[in-house]
Amino acid sequence: MIVADKKPIEEIIETVKPYDRILVLGCNECVTVCEAGGKKEVEVLASALRMHFIQQGSKKNFDERTLERQCDHEYLEEIRDIMDNYDAVLSLACGVGVQFMAEKYHTTPLIPGVNTCFLGATEKRGLWTERCQACGSCVLAHTAGICPISRCAKRVMNGPCGGSTGGKCEINKDVDCAWQLIIDRLRDLDRMDEYEIVTPIKDWSTERAGGPRTVAREDVQV
């Protein structure tokens, strides 16, 4: 899933300042799972903002709404009839949702309420970690199912960089060395001979090298 983190409230206060009628808009998908932009977070943020501006003596209206998804035209249509009531939307969706909203409601200012961080998973409640950087050409088959691009600080593709100590990465002793994990798992899978195969120079054109990417599937297009 896409993992997001809450933006500092001070930053949000600054960005909503120019507007009086604001819709705080959550999303029921990834940002709900990572507890940054779901219904609950919309409630908490909207009340914090109301409180702040009441204390400041300024009259602002913060309404709450949470859509099934903000990265989907269909769900964004659900709020078309109420959009005229707002000067701005504070969206707690990931960057994709915020942009989709901005495209759909061209004349309404959009403010992101979260920082979109990475593609990752819930390690345990309150801890999310990165697992993929959407490189567009997955190598997991050859790296024991552990991604060297998202999990190795230097994104090295052929074994550890030489800075790995006691299974930890040289950039931070709390971070596992991805290549240690890969080697350990290859060993457990009895596939260490694969480790000897030199991975050819990486094709980054499927990542961001060619600019924004598109997946076009004629077989499913209507």
């Binding site: 990486k202 094709d203 980054w204 054109s205 990542e207 961001r208 090298a209 060619g210 600019g211």
Partner: peptide
């Protein structure tokens, strides 16, 4: 890089 001769470069 996509314009050049190392079009898979980052």
């Amino acid at each position: 890089p996509s314009f050049g001769d190392h079009h898979t470069a980052k």
